[in-house]
Nucleic acid binder design. Structure first.
Lengths: 386, 386
DNA sequence: TTGAAAGCGCTAACAG
DNA sequence: CTGTTAGCGCTTTCAA
């Protein structure tokens, strides 16, 4: 018995004692004045109790009406919904969560919301989540595993699952957290954790193919961070493609995955230039172009460069960047679908990563190799050596 | 009385019959078989009851230990914390929220997470929120008021407050929602809603000042969307500055606040060029530069252009863009501080917007006006008229 | 199909 | 300073 409900009704004389489910004892104290607004409890947002009373049914019936439609007579349901609407009733997510542990919240972890690469991932995740009635909590680790852990720590207890859009944490930490909530990783393969990744090997292969067709040989790969899983995949793919396509590939790095990293790569490249380079990502490619351009090297006349990711800025720089477009929105959406499946019970954890296709976007930073290929160690014409 | 608690206690003989608060009636029904694991309730994450029992105190004391440190003896607290740690107890946010309506969640609404302008705002909001122990739920309206309303609708019941980082909803809708939760708007003044905005008039004034010093006259303003509050502010500031600085300003627009908008603006500008233009934002400025450059106009030799916002790409384009830097991170942080203050009770709603300072970042898209200013209606030298 | 009643885990008076 | 006791609003057996 909910004492709290009865008492207030009784304590408020002007409310009269509408048979609020009062016991016989209560019933004896005959009401003397009619009530206008029979509001049950303290003022505030209406609850199922308010709706129940107004509709003349039990609270549990109201609850069922919203949580298990179908388990209640359609007419009663209709009436209840009507009353609820009139009262402006909205089910309280916290109360529901308390008894069901179902919060309709998902966490999305990204290392840096400022990094263009994540925009579309975020959009894809949000869209797919919204479609399933889920809201997403964005956890921005700011490239710090401490921040990431803290933020995740805070979000963990309220979310039903986690999408790891590139994490800065160790595999061990990740697995630790995966024990507490369903999780799926994007762009990173962690043993035991389901993941979805872009087709890295095909991406670099297409880039190399494109460059090869233009007559470039050899090609320089401006490598990403040592710890980067994606970099490992791309380099591996590049070596394989190199064999198949019969165009040599040199590796130069590791480099920070930023414009600054690209500048650093350009400086190194100037010491032993090639007619084409493939950047670890667009930022690196952009930094490369900027620097070599400032040194009098023309793109793509002297050197062709292709980036990776196809971020927003790729089409803004001069010349517009030829790059491998990763389907980031699809990546995010796929991750959420997988996650939701896990949440719904079917726990297909582990297994090989889901691979989504990529494609090469040809713009103006690539062109035919210069007529005469530079001798090894010799800068292409026009390049001031260092 | 929590039946669930008492029964288990009695069932465990090895616990002796410590007067756990059992009634006489309960005490009589002597247990016949011993139990090994005297686990209180259903298996799962530990609750304050588990901690209380293990520490030999009342649940409420455990609760206080975590929710109102200081209101409990430091030694007892220490012991409780120790036990809690051992048990791996973590306070359940949903349960807490249910009784306090304090969720430690904030909503941040942005029209398009893909728009570079919002990155720093998001970071500022996240940082400030995290510092106060709050987690933020990102609501991306995707430039659609329907989506925005729906997402907000979903988040509303669980957040304690809302930061509107540029909304697509009507003032009326906004005010409607503000009735339900504390709110503060960024970059938009809505009557009755506290807001924080960048110093638009000072920003455009600095831009015009800069251009004036370089000898430009008159200057063209590539206007933003008609409905944009910011555009209104900027144009107004420009007209005032125009008077004070004695340099004429022409308005050209409205334009979409995008690269495409800039291209459209450039086409119009070519019909009656000036030696300098100020874009509504960086994207517009970038689009402008792209187009005029493709038509043989040199920047900044033939025309100087200044953008607005100082987005990431501003420093990536060629030439790097001179632009007015808006302190977006500070904007976000200030908004959260204000919001938190409201949530904590002091409701300083309404009032004039909080204005945060901006500054001009000079890069290479601006330079001295061409020696001979073009006669009105005449294209600067080198510009092919249409 | 509906109702009654017991919690979900925590906080909050109110006593002691 | 600590324990008792009601709930917060909703879901969920268990009966009817």
């Amino acid at each position: 018995m909910r004492a709290g409900e009865v008492a207030p009704g009784l304590d408020a004389p002007e409310e009269g004692n509408a048979t609020t489910g009062a016991t016989e004892a209560d019933a004896v104290s005959v009401p003397e004045e009619p009530v206008t607004t029979g509001r049950p409890r303290r003022r505030g947002v209406p609850t199922i109790y308010d709706v129940a009373e107004a509709a003349g049914v039990a609270p549990s019936t109201v609850s069922r009406t919203f949580s298990r439609p179908g388990r209640v007579n359609s007419e009663t349901a209709a009436r209840i919904r009507q009353v609820a609407a009139d009262l402006g009733y909205r089910t309280n997510p916290m109360a529901r969560a308390l008894s069901t542990t179902h919060t309709s919240l998902l966490a999305l972890v990204v290392p840096d919301i400022t990094n263009p690469v994540y925009f579309e991932i975020i959009n894809g995740v949000q869209d797919e989540a919204a479609e399933a009635g889920y809201t997403v909590v964005l956890v921005d680790s700011r490239e710090s595993d401490r921040r990431e852990r803290e933020a995740l720590e805070r979000a963990l207890p309220i979310v039903e699952g986690i999408v790891l859009g590139t994490s800065r944490m160790s595999d061990a930490s990740i697995r630790m957290i995966a024990k507490q909530r369903p999780m799926v990783a994007i762009n990173r393969a962690v043993r035991e954790i389901p993941s979805v990744v872009p087709d890295n090997s095909r991406g670099v292969r297409r880039a190399l193919e494109h460059l090869g067709e233009l007559g470039h040989e050899p090609v320089t790969y401006l490598a990403g961070p040592e710890a980067s899983w994606a970099d490992g995949m791309r380099w591996r793919g590049l070596r394989e493609a190199s064999l198949e396509l019969a165009v040599h590939v040199r590796r130069l790095g590791p480099l920070a995955p930023t414009v600054a990293g690209g500048v650093a790569g350009a400086k190194a490249w100037l010491q032993s230039p090639t007619t084409a380079v493939i950047g670890f990502n667009d930022l690196v490619a952009i930094g490369f172009i900027r620097y070599v351009t400032s040194r009098g090297v023309r793109v793509p006349e002297d050197v062709s460069v292709v980036g990776y990711d196809n971020i927003f800025a790729a089409d803004l720089v001069t010349p517009p960047l030829t790059t491998v477009a990763t389907p980031r929105r699809a990546l995010g959406a796929a991750a959420v679908r997988n996650l939701l499946a896990q949440i719904k019970g079917a726990h297909p954890r582990g297994g090989p990563p889901v691979v989504v296709p990529v494609k090469l976007v040809e713009r103006q930073s690539t062109g035919p190799a210069p007529a005469q290929a530079p001798a090894a160690g010799t800068p292409p014409r026009g390049i001031p050596v260092r």
